[in-house]
Amino acid sequence: MAVQALVDSLSKLDEAHLVMLDCAVKKRAAIMKNNVEDLIGILNQESRIVKQIEQLEDTRMTACYAFLQERGVKSQLNLTITELSRLVFDPEEKKSLLDMQKQLSDTLHRLKELNDLNQKLIEQSLTFLDYSLDLLVGEPEQAATYQHPADKSGGRGRPGLFDTRA
């Protein structure tokens, strides 16, 4: 019975990660459209899902410990599903557990790939914004006047949008 509780907790974790996967797809679209309002909404939704995943992870750990106790293991070890499956002797239960492990692993892998892609898109957007800002306000004025190399306190950064010396 503890094996089924473990499989159920893994199934719920997979469902929550599939919702996160859907959010990652929506996030990619919002990033590509440069829609900040949608992106903020998606991030808020992701935050709620992460809290739910943390609760589901606690449930999974409880199911793991219950399974270990049912098998006579008194330790509170953090065993992997593969290691736990070695303690399952019913072939159907073992197959069910390993199938759910593979399904969750595949979902997590897809989520990681999408998050990596979203990170690259955000980095490209920031690089483009920095480049656009440099075009708009111009490069810092360093070669306009002579400055002694030892006098570094007089250096200016990027000029503002309006020149206050006018």
Rank of each mutant, 00 (worst) to 15 (best):
L97N: 02
Q55S: 14
C23R: 06
E15F: 02
S105H: 10
D116Y: 13
T62V: 05
S9E: 03
L98K: 04
P149L: 04
R158N: 07
K74Q: 09
T82P: 09
E57A: 13
Y146Q: 06
D58P: 10
Y131A: 08
K74R: 14
D116M: 08
L13N: 11
T145R: 10
T107M: 03
K26T: 12
S105M: 09
K152I: 02
Q101I: 00
L121I: 15
L98N: 04
A150D: 13
Q142I: 12
P91C: 02
T82V: 13
N44T: 14
I40H: 07
F89A: 04
K95Y: 01
D22F: 02
L121R: 10
A5T: 07
D134T: 10
A144M: 12
M32L: 14
S9Q: 08
S96L: 02
L87A: 04
E113K: 13
F128N: 15
L136I: 12
Y146M: 04
L43F: 07
D116K: 14
L68Y: 00
Q119R: 15
S11C: 06
Q147D: 04
A5H: 12
L43V: 15
L18T: 07
R48Y: 06
A2L: 02
L6D: 00
R28A: 08
N115S: 13
K51R: 10
Q45V: 05
A2R: 04
D130P: 05
Y131L: 14
D58F: 12
T59Q: 13
S105G: 14
I40Q: 09
R158K: 07
G154Q: 15
K152T: 09
C64G: 06
Q119P: 00
V88Y: 00
L68R: 00
E70R: 09
D14N: 13
L135I: 15
E92H: 09
M61I: 15
N35I: 04
T82S: 15
E139C: 05
K102E: 10
L114H: 07
R165A: 05
A150P: 10
L104A: 01
G155W: 10
K51M: 14
S9R: 05
R110C: 12
N115Y: 11
V36L: 14
Y146I: 03
L136R: 08
V137R: 13
D14A: 11
H109C: 11
G154I: 09
N115V: 06
I42N: 08
G157Y: 03
Q45H: 08
A143E: 13
I49P: 01
A66G: 08
S11W: 02
K26N: 11
N118Y: 14
L97G: 02
S9D: 06
M1R: 12
I53C: 08
S105Y: 12
F162W: 07
A63W: 04
L104T: 00
M32C: 05
R156V: 01
Q4L: 09
E141D: 12
A63K: 01
Y65L: 12
V73W: 01
Q119L: 11
N44Q: 14
G72H: 08
N44E: 14
E83Y: 00
Q76M: 13
R28D: 09
F67R: 02
N44C: 09
L39I: 09
G138R: 04
L21S: 05
E15N: 01
T164G: 02
T80L: 05
S153Q: 06
V50S: 15
M32F: 05
N35R: 06
K94D: 00
I40F: 00
